[in-house]
């Protein structure tokens, strides 16, 4: 487990190229209501051959931003019939792989999730799926550039034991992918060893921490 101080503060911006800036602005600003918060008009990029471009940013909440590059005169690149403005894939590439890279934007409540569903369903880019996963509920669509966008809410707060479980999963994963034949069976077998080694001690420490925190709360503040 890392003991390094954790100083980062979320997403400053994530950036994608677009060949359809008008559609991109309609989708993010006019349909979803994400404000345009910054843009750069760049005449080339110094001495190298580089097209003039517009770099523009939408506020996706929490001070985080989704940015695009539009390059004047640039035509889409080839590569196959599937994919998006950035990546094109051959016909035989499975859709689960293509969809694995996506942007998920957080909302706080079911009401907010359904509000964005209403906005999308009234547009050219209606919701394609609404799914309850293990502990989150999400809606999905593709933006005018073909990028998959997810909007998601938590069905409940994450519990402390899920952090332990994640740590054990990742330690087991790192172990099994270093071995000769990575598989789910190998991972779950290794993870069971880690559960036996570490889970009981974790629970004792967690209980002790919770007791200490409770003791530090003034009597009047307790429910």
């Amino acid at each position: 487990m890392s003991e390094l101080p954790h100083r980062v503060r979320g997403v400053d911006h994530v950036a994608y190229p677009t060949f359809d800036p008008a559609g991109t602005v309609r989708f993010y600003r006019d349909v979803l209501g994400f404000p345009v918060v910054h843009s750069i008009c760049a005449a080339g990029w110094g001495p190298e051959r580089h097209p003039d471009f517009i770099h523009f940013f939408f506020d996706i909440g929490n001070g985080d931003r989704l940015a695009f590059f539009y390059y004047f005169g640039l035509e889409p690149f080839g590569g196959g019939p599937q994919g998006d403005a950035y990546s094109r894939f051959a016909e035989d590439v499975p859709v689960y792989f293509i969809r694995s890279r996506h942007l998920a934007i957080h909302v706080d409540s079911e009401e907010d999730l359904l509000e964005y569903r209403r906005r999308l369903d009234g547009s050219e880019w209606p919701v394609e799926m609404q799914i309850q996963h293990e502990t989150i509920e999400s809606i999905y669509t593709h933006d005018p550039n073909g990028y998959m966008i997810e909007i998601t809410r938590a069905l409940r707060p994450v519990t402390p034991q899920e952090d332990l479980d994640a740590a054990l999963t990742i330690d087991a994963l790192v172990d099994v992918v270093s071995g000769p034949d990575p598989s789910m069976a190998a991972l779950l077998t290794r993870k069971a060893e880690l559960i036996v080694e570490r889970a009981a001690a974790w629970e004792e420490q967690h209980a002790a921490r919770a007791t200490a925190e409770q003791a530090s709360v003034p009597e009047v503040a307790r429910p």
Partner: peptide
């Protein structure tokens, strides 16, 4: 269990296989 919960409920296997 709904789909996503069902297919991710096993956390470990000891002397066992699915």
């Amino acid at each position: 269990c709904r789909h996503a919960v069902w297919y991710s409920c096993v956390a470990g296997l000891r002397g066992a296989r699915v």
